[in-house]
Design a binder for these strands. Structure first.
Lengths: 165, 165
DNA sequence: GTTTACTGCTTCGAATTCAAATGGTGCGTT
DNA sequence: AACGCACCATTTGAATTCGAAGCAGTAAAC
């Protein structure tokens, strides 16, 4: 017989559905704000934010793509747009000739600073408004192990297919 | 002075980022499983699941779109695909001539039953594996008020634009 | 040192998404 | 009853997305 019929109890099911719905709604709201405030898509904002966080202001393409959970070809496309807009610069990496290092420009930092307050405002008022300070702490403690677990779980396709394929 | 400079403390920021990352990773994994198990996109699965839950097996287009947080035109497209695949049927609503009622077919229910176990398996092993039973209960209790708050918060565009526009 | 396998990025084509514009239908007002 | 306004769904066109294929550069094996 197959390994224990997988099932989710009603609490799990509700948590799962709510998780999906909450992030969908949040993403829509944020997307709209970013479009209005700086003509940025959510992905573009994520990329700029990640670059802005980096001490050097730069990242390799692949690491950047992994960081925002995005396809490599998609990143190439977005990097092209951002570069055309003068928000980032692409240059061959010093140590490895294959890889490209993307670096945020001053204009990129400026735009980031321009849209950030509104972004924070949306997240605050939509996601954190109904939560107390303690609630947020608890939520963070719940999410961290899930994040680590997911990061360390190879995306199915990467799992070595032993036999029968 | 402007309303209190909005900002997120480090705990909030971490929770927000983890939330985005966790759902992105989860979505990718689920998407892949659904594609393999039944050649369904995530949206299509959500639509079928919602229809399958309905007592009548049917929903109006708009309600369906709102339920899965999706654009109306996008839903028209997906409903067309699902109908072509014989998984749903579209018919004019009995009471309101303008609206269309989408109803799941037996084939749709069958496919849903076919992909569901794998879907549950992915969600279980990826999202719930690192969480105890109590953790999930706490998570559910945190998400519910956020969900309700977001549902009752009109999507910016619907908010009446007072001045300066 | 050459061959072979692997990594990193880009290009290409197909599929999906959304916003804006279109065509009907219901509903309240005049 | 005709009008105006709001709502429902679809069509259309542009933009974005991904996977597969292609093109380097790098590392490993022999």
């Amino acid at each position: 017989m197959p390994d224990s019929p997988p099932s989710l109890d009603s609490v799990q099911l509700g948590a799962y559905f709510d998780l999906i719905e909450v992030t969908s709604l949040l993403r829509h709201a944020v997307e709209q704000q970013l479009r209005e405030a700086g003509d940025l898509s959510y992905v573009q904002f994520q990329l700029l934010a990640r670059l802005g966080d980096s001490p050097t202001g730069g990242h390799r393409m692949t690491d950047l793509a992994d960081g925002v959970v995005y396809s490599r070809s998609g990143l190439t496309y977005q990097a092209g747009l951002l570069e055309k807009a003068g928000l980032v610069v692409r240059a061959p990496s010093p140590d490895d000739e294959r890889s490209v290092t993307v670096t945020i420009t001053d204009a990129g930092r400026a735009l980031l600073a321009q849209v950030l307050p509104g972004h924070v405002e949306v997240v605050s008022s939509l996601l954190f408004a109904p939560l107390s300070r303690d609630d947020v702490t608890v939520l963070a403690r719940l999410l961290a192990p899930v994040r680590d677990h997911m990061r360390s779980t190879p995306p199915r396709s990467a799992a070595p297919r032993r036999r029968s394929d």
